[in-house]
């Protein structure tokens, strides 16, 4: 190594590489994530106008209008959209827990080679196109599909002939939205739950059994309490994207009862009311801050526990 290295090389070797490693991604995220977000935030205090871009701020101090937020509360369209979104997301999350938990637990109970195969089968849909998985359900829920026809036949077998159905109206409903959300987000529930359950010490179960607990009691007293962090992680991974979902309600949802993601998109593209779209977006973020804080709280606790152990 020569002494006469250039000043730039020396700077890079000493401090520069560190500053670059921190600075480059930092700048990128400030420019393409923080700055756009600040624009949205500012715009939510503007008004729609026939300008280019189609917005106008208040001309005098404090330059901010609260009109959009007032409309957000007074106009039932927005309130209903929020309620529908959060309700659908909550039901989908609950169903994901109910279906995902036994599946995750089941995967921990099979032999090791089976375990890898089943995990692969959970992850596989996650890698394939989200859009196409939603699309697959469009083919199943429609009135002419084999699934709809067989379900109709089953229902008709029970119903008296005069009430016989021609088909079951499943497409374009909240039911369809929740169903497809569960389908799309189930891997997000199973994977963190599995990671959590897999780490549980099996000797704990054996100890509880040895002390006289029945399998159900072992589950209730040992497994379930210890898997709560996994449930919370999975629930947030489902709930947060589900509440802002755009594709699923657009393809299988009920246009008369839109979810919030669709409202934002429509305000922006169809109504060209950028300020209102921004205000709805800001409000959605404020609503989502609560579950996010729960998440970071649990995360911090888990981290503290992990650090305490070493």
């Amino acid at each position: 190594m020569g002494r006469e290295r250039g000043a730039l090389a020396r700077w890079f070797d000493d401090r520069g590489w560190r500053q670059l490693v921190i600075g480059v991604p930092y700048l990128w995220l400030i420019l393409f994530f923080l700055l756009p977000f600040i624009i949205v935030l500012a715009m939510s205090f503007a008004r729609r106008a026939d300008l280019s871009p189609p917005i106008a701020f208040l001309e005098y101090w404090p330059y901010l209008r609260w009109d959009n937020f007032e409309r957000l509360i007074s106009d039932t369209l927005y309130v209903r959209a929020f309620a529908t979104s959060l309700w659908n997301a909550a039901i989908a999350t609950l169903l994901c827990i109910l279906i995902g938990y036994p599946m995750a637990l089941g995967i921990t109970r099979v032999s090791k080679s089976w375990r890898n195969l089943l995990l692969m089968l959970v992850i596989l849909p996650f890698w394939t196109s989200f859009l196409l998985r939603v699309y697959a359900w469009m083919g199943l829920l429609g009135t002419n599909s084999w699934l709809n026809k067989s379900l109709t036949a089953m229902v008709n077998a029970v119903l008296p002939a005069e009430h016989a159905l021609r088909s079951i109206p499943m497409m374009n409903s909240n039911f369809a939205v929740v169903l497809v959300m569960v389908y799309s987000y189930l891997p997000f529930m199973i994977l963190p739950l599995y990671a959590n359950l897999e780490k549980l010490d099996n000797t704990l179960n054996e100890a509880a059994t040895d002390l006289g607990s029945k399998p159900w009691q072992v589950f209730k007293d040992v497994t379930l309490p210890l898997s709560i962090p996994g449930i919370v992680a999975g629930a947030l991974l489902v709930f947060i994207p589900a509440s802002g979902e755009l594709i699923i309600p657009s393809l299988v949802g009920n246009a008369a009862d839109p979810m919030i993601g669709r409202v934002i998109s429509d305000e922006f593209s169809s109504a060209r009311d950028w300020p209102m779209a921004s205000a709805v977006a800001v409000a959605l973020l404020l609503v989502l801050v609560v579950p996010m804080m729960i998440h970071s709280h649990f995360e911090k606790r888990a981290q503290e526990r992990a650090e305490g152990r070493t």
Binding site: L29, G261, L285
Partner: peptide, 28 residues
């Protein structure tokens, strides 16, 4: 702390909002 926040925020940001905000950025 700022970097750590900027790294986690896009993960939980609804896609619609990310999309719209970037479009506005590009327009401006």
């Amino acid at each position: 702390a700022g970097l750590s926040g900027l790294v986690t925020a896009p993960l939980v940001m609804p896609e619609v909002i990310t999309g719209i905000s970037l479009l506005m950025l590009f327009i401006y």
